[in-house]
């Protein structure tokens, strides 16, 4: 019973071939990040000055950077940091955003306060706010996660609040209250489960934004310290050699594009799948 509904869900989700392809790509990238030590052909940090800025060859499939480090290995390891930071941002902003979104949507008295803060945060350009926060907090992986979470949490709050406003008025919420269910349980079970699908869709988009934003921050020097290989730091440190050795920036860039794009497409597929209005059109 459970299994067949899951199967039906997957079949509908992957009716569009592009979504399936994106999902496979996404899984491959994730797997790559998880299994980095076994997949990477070289140590990502081994410096070999004699082989600096070498084009793609049999020894270094995607070439080497300005210190002679293997770019493929750095991309494989970089996936860990880039996706790790993205995932952490998703988890933090989902948790905090859902909590505040539920409260703003359910308790009219909190709505004004929470939404004004959200409006204020959303009025600032994402990357500018992130740069400011990292500059204040100091550059580290933890602070990048913190800064990006602050940037993306307001989006989640908005989505959750909007859904909560609709759901709290539905008769089943009153029916639950008539059965003696506490407000906390109404929020954490009855309403939360009903806002789950828009939040899930939002999560995939925020994942994509966060991967891009982390790369952007690192490129601008406001991201993680350069010794930690992320796709953003690779482009940042390689940019001055781009005219002689395009592979230094091209391949990390492709990795970013591939990851962000596949996340977006999977998110789109998920949204089409979960939105009953669009479901018919499919």
């Amino acid at each position: 019973m459970e299994q067949s509904s899951l199967l039906l869900f997957l079949r509908r989700m992957f009716r569009r071939k592009l979504v399936l392809v994106a999902f496979v790509v996404l899984c491959a990238i994730m797997l790559m990040a998880l299994l980095a030590p076994w997949i990477a052909p070289h140590e990502p940090t081994t410096i070999r000055v004699v082989r600096r800025l070498k084009p793609p060859s049999e020894l270094n499939w995607l070439g080497t950077d300005e210190f002679g480090r293997d770019i493929l290995s750095r991309i494989v390891y970089g996936a860990r940091a880039s996706l790790g930071i993205g995932l952490a941002v998703v988890l933090v902003s989902m948790t905090v955003g859902t909590l505040f979104g539920l409260m703003a949507g359910y308790f009219r008295s909190l709505d004004g306060i929470i939404m004004r803060v959200v409006d204020a945060l959303m009025a600032l350009p994402d990357i500018l706010l992130a740069i400011f926060l990292v500059a204040v907090l100091g550059a580290s992986a933890f602070n990048v996660v913190l800064a990006l979470s602050i940037v993306y949490t307001p989006r989640v709050i908005r989505v959750v609040r909007a859904s909560t406003l609709v759901i709290r008025e539905l008769p089943f919420v009153e029916a639950a209250r008539a059965l003696g269910v506490s407000t906390r349980r109404i929020l954490s079970v009855h309403i939360l489960l009903n806002v789950a699908s828009p939040v899930l869709v939002q999560a995939t988009f925020i994942f994509a934004y966060a991967v891009l934003a982390e790369a952007g921050l690192s490129f601008l020097g406001a991201g993680v310290p350069p010794e930690l290989p992320t796709w953003g730091t690779m482009i940042a440190s390689g940019q001055q050699y781009a005219d002689q050795a395009f592979w230094v920036v091209l391949f990390p860039g492709l990795a970013i594009v591939l990851a962000a794009l596949s996340l977006q497409v999977v998110g789109d597929g998920l949204r089409d799948m979960l939105d009953p209005k669009l479901r018919k059109a499919l």
């Binding site: 009153e174 029916a175 008539a178 059965l179 009855h190 489960l193 009903n194």
Partner: peptide
């Protein structure tokens, strides 16, 4: 509520939580 006083509502289509 629910234990000693219970209530049945008018709208059976929407008085149940759709995701449970």
């Amino acid at each position: 509520r629910g234990a000693e006083i219970a209530m049945v509502f008018q709208e059976p289509m929407t008085s149940l939580n759709p995701v449970l």
